[in-house]
């Protein structure tokens, strides 16, 4: 197990370096004055430009620039945005909100996705199964931002069950509606994946053997069918964290949640290149680390993986 963790850690380093290098290269190593290019046709205050030049050490050779960029990233020295606020301080304030939103969305998709998928898989071909299958296709087909507006309109404006926009003080309850919107598409995927894997495991030899041993049905379902079906679901949830981040940009924008996604959304609307690069780099770091965590969870779920060479 320890060897597995070490190996995974070692694998994460080149991926992180490669990805940040890719991001950095795209923005700063292409011809032209990157600072001017970052802002396009907008003109930020001179002081912002000066701060950026100092931040990114543009007179140094590329590799040194990248080194300093990395060092800045790890020391959270992320520079300033248009209004000369330090990005790190802003992030520290808004990150917890996004984390709450993500946890809520993850919980919704994992719990409901697995539960519905399990029941559908166990009753394959029955009414519940076919209904859920068709419904999940429709949910997958409706893009998050469409879903966001529809939910905002229906639950926020017409029914008044939730605040249509969240605003500055975001609590768990306020975030429920955006979390449902954010989690719904993945919920459908988790459901379908769980169903497929439950159906497959139901016919597995070891499940038949477990039944032949005299185990009760609930025990066979929980300890053998469901437990083994969790493996692909966990893999999916990990790989999908990136999609969750992308969805958070849209969802937080629509519901005006004061989080990282919203900040990125605003920066995109205003064309604030440096802010985008800084936040995306941090998110890539989070994504890679989160995937590492998922891998460990995966190894815990599937003992075979720990011994693979």
């Amino acid at each position: 197990m320890i060897r597995y963790i070490v190996r995974r850690l070692l694998q994460v380093i080149p991926v992180f370096l490669g990805t940040t290098l890719l991001v950095y290269f795209m923005v700063f190593a292409l011809p032209g004055d990157p600072i001017a290019a970052l802002f396009g046709d907008r003109q930020p205050p001179q002081s912002v430009i000066d701060a950026l030049r100092a931040q990114y050490n543009l007179d140094q050779p590329f590799i040194v620039q990248y080194g300093i960029f990395l060092k800045n990233l790890f020391t959270l020295n992320l520079g300033v945005d248009f209004t000369q606020q330090p990005i790190a301080a802003t992030l520290a304030r808004i990150f917890p909100v996004t984390a709450m939103l993500a946890v809520e969305a993850l919980a919704i998709q994992a719990i409901f996705g697995v539960a519905f998928g399990l029941v559908a898989g166990l009753r394959r071909g029955k009414l519940f199964d076919s209904t859920v299958l068709v419904a999940s296709l429709v949910v997958i087909a409706v893009p998050t931002f469409v879903l966001g507006f529809v939910f905002q309109l229906v639950f926020g404006v017409y029914l008044g069950w939730a605040k249509p926009t969240v605003g500055a003080q975001a609590g768990w309850g306020d975030l429920l509606l955006p979390a449902v919107v954010l989690g719904l598409v993945s919920f459908a995927y988790v459901l379908r994946l769980t169903r497929a894997s439950v159906t497959e495991n139901m016919n597995a030899d070891y499940v038949r053997t477990a039944t032949a041993k005299g185990l009760s049905r609930p025990r066979v379902v929980l300890a053998h069918i469901l437990r083994n079906s969790m493996i692909p679901v966990v893999t999916y949830l990990g790989a999908n964290l990136g999609g969750l981040m992308g969805g958070a940009i849209v969802t937080e924008g629509i519901f005006n949640v004061p989080g990282v996604g919203n900040k990125l959304y605003q920066a995109t609307l205003r064309g604030e290149g440096p802010t985008i690069v800084a936040i995306v780099s941090i998110l890539v770091l989070v994504f890679v680390l989160a995937n590492l965590l998922v891998d460990l969870l995966y190894a815990w779920l599937d003992p075979r993986i720990r011994y693979e060479a």
Binding site: D205, G214, R227, D302
Partner: peptide, 28 residues
């Protein structure tokens, strides 16, 4: 009924399956 079969399986009737590779649950 299935409930009666569950009572019988294990202590009245048991089974040794064909393929030892696929008949033990790999995660336990």
């Amino acid at each position: 009924p299935e409930r009666r079969m569950i009572e019988l399986r294990g202590n009245t009737i048991g089974m040794v399956p064909q393929d030892p590779m696929s008949n033990l649950n790999p995660v336990w």
